[in-house]
Design a protein around this nucleic acid. Structure first.
Lengths: 221, 221
DNA sequence: TTGACAAAACAGGACAACCGGTCTGTTTTA
DNA sequence: TAAAACAGACCGGTTGTCCTGTTTTGTCAA
């Protein structure tokens, strides 16, 4: 296969491979429990190469946070919410999509952002700021969507910031419990708790809107 | 002070001192980031003594979880909820009490249970089961309180399990965000999000009560 | 095109610090 | 007087980082 005398430099590919492995390891085992030796072996990368692209473990983690965790939040939350008919519909759709996905895959690894946030927020200011920024963008996307809804006359009684904070918090906490219990149905319980109250646009309005589907869209990520 | 030739055996006191230090260290820095050497130094305990009371680091962590984390949840959540006039009142009171406490102390260290749960749930089955059990008792206390309310005719439209799951999730997630942002006001935002909706007993004032069966089976675990 | 040549990319070993656990021995206590 | 409680040294393994080389690649003059 690979000729011993030949070598092909592929900086970007190697960097991506390291980030792939690190993202997965940090998610599955956490930052401190993932040694760079493990990462080197898993990625098939030499110490010198790793050190060339990421001088320190902290630099690697920062890259994972900025490039991968942020992208994951963007992909599984922000984009679907923006694409939904309304903020409430978007939140509901994401909850159900994630629950369905977790039920299919059989185990719960938790939310990448929350996993790292709990372990690293207090460990280093740089980590904390990077993680807080992702939380911020997450909430902002939802609250902006609520404001957009309101400009069309919907949900005028809802405070955008508070609704966004509750949605993100409920999801984060639900994933935390689901991870500990290894039971994705807790996500559905939390969504149901929101449904009959916070997520019903006409505030407990029964007659209003009843046509929402059970499972909007598979949305495999 | 302490005579060099004299020694006083105090097994329980020494055990308590180690648990105090470990609880604090695990909360502030996490499990993996806290070395037993640090703990020994902080507690002023020799290696032999520590090993006598806690053979392994895992045993120490398990003791912290079973005796301290569970007690913390009991003290700050379960007892206040049980003592409150209703489940909703209890939840509101705890949110506000914690928010006020965090604002006074100026920084947010997060929820001890969630901090350890994120780091250890996937690391070891024993950890996971112990942590999941605490989450379970937490939710059960709230749902039991809701059922007690309902036996007096209140909140009959509320699903106890779903309400409890949402309350715990919202709190857990709010603390997660508050820790990352170092901003306790996020707790108040989430409470407000719950207030005007889920936490209002008369469900928006309209024709309350509506058994929504939006999601398939209730599925209590 | 070619041929230096410097910089980037990569390989792999070395290293000191640290980790958690064990071990032997001493002191206290029931 | 034996067991419990404690002290402190010790050890093999791991950690993250650094260091010295080697190979590849882009650049630019000839």
């Amino acid at each position: 296969m690979a000729r011993p005398g030949k070598r092909i430099n592929d900086p970007e590919g190697m960097r991506k491979k390291v980030l792939d492995v690190a993202e997965d390891a940090f998610q599955a085992r956490g930052y401190n429990a993932s040694s760079i030796g493990d990462l080197m072996a898993a990625a098939g990368v030499s110490g010198g190469a790793l050190h060339h692209h990421f001088p320190t473990k902290k630099a690697l983690a920062l890259a994972v946070i900025d490039e991968r965790v942020a992208a994951a939040v963007e992909e599984t939350w922000i984009a679907p919410v923006l694409a939904a008919a309304s903020a409430r519909e978007g939140v509901r759709a994401v909850f159900e999509a994630v629950a369905t996905e977790l039920e299919q895959q059989g185990f719960v690894r938790g939310c990448p952002l929350n996993n790292l946030a709990h372990e690293l927020s207090l460990a280093d200011p740089d980590f904390r700021i990077a993680l807080a920024g992702i939380f911020d963008g997450w909430r902002r996307a939802i609250s902006d969507k609520v404001r957009a809804d309101q400009q069309v006359g919907r949900d005028e009684g809802t405070d955008p910031e508070r609704f966004a904070a509750l949605a993100v918090a409920a999801y984060s906490g639900a994933m935390s419990m689901a991870k500990a219990a290894q039971d994705a149905s807790l996500l559905r319980d939390c969504l149901a708790g929101l449904e009959r109250s916070a997520l019903s646009p006409s505030q407990g309005g029964l007659a209003a809107r009843r046509r929402n589907r059970i499972l909007p869209r598979p949305r495999t990520l």
